[in-house]
């Protein structure tokens, strides 16, 4: 890193970590709200009726693997390997997009099966939590695409590994949140109606 700082840590990276610390309380609140309402499904479908565990397992797996491709992108850039850096960034963005596509599919299926946003406290909490996560993933995709664009403009070189690393931190964090959501919301036995 270029600047001499008191702690020797870069401003940007430290700021990202502080931000991620803050995000823990954001997702914590959303997850707790969901837990509070998971059996408040009123007249609508219950979580146990509607979750498609095999399907979500696949998309969870996709997101998990995008973390691997993200570190590989960073590792490539650290070695100055621009080509592989682009390749892995692109793969990461695509895997993210597949995950989002899966979420869109899941949401539309749920709506078709009678679980709208306003159906019950459960439905509102479910869509809000997973929606917030989806927005985070989408922002990550936008950032990765921006990295790719600047790479093709010749601006993403070995000097900028830290930028990639920081966006990577964000990306892994979003992945880690999904690790929790997948277990706590999907896999823990859910109430049925």
């Amino acid at each position: 890193m270029s600047e001499e700082t008191t702690t020797g840590l870069s401003h940007n990276k430290l700021a990202m970590w502080v931000f991620l610390g803050s995000e823990c309380l954001l997702f914590g609140a959303l997850i707790s709200t969901y837990l509070l309402y998971r059996n408040k499904f009123y007249d609508g479908p219950a979580p146990g009726d509607i979750f498609d565990i095999p399907f979500t397992s696949v998309s969870s797996f996709v997101l998990l693997m995008s973390s691997l491709t993200m570190v590989l992108a960073l590792s490539a850039l650290q070695k100055g390997d621009i080509r592989n850096n682009r390749l892995w960034l692109l793969t990461t963005a695509l895997l993210g997009a597949v995950f989002i596509g899966g979420q869109v599919y899941e949401f539309t299926t749920f709506i078709r099966e009678g679980l709208g946003y306003t159906t019950s406290p459960f439905s509102s909490a479910f869509f809000t939590l997973t929606g917030f996560h989806g927005v985070h993933v989408s922002l990550g995709i936008v950032m990765i695409m921006s990295l790719l664009i600047s790479s093709y403009r010749g601006k993403l070189t070995k000097k900028n590994t830290e930028t990639v690393e920081i966006i990577g931190l964000y990306w892994h964090f979003v992945d880690v949140v999904w690790i929790i959501i997948f277990t706590v919301i999907y896999l823990v036995p859910n109430p049925t109606s």
Partner: peptide
Amino acid sequence: ANFFNTEMGA
């Protein structure tokens, strides 16, 4: 959304 809709059990 029904976060505070007590009629639905919120």
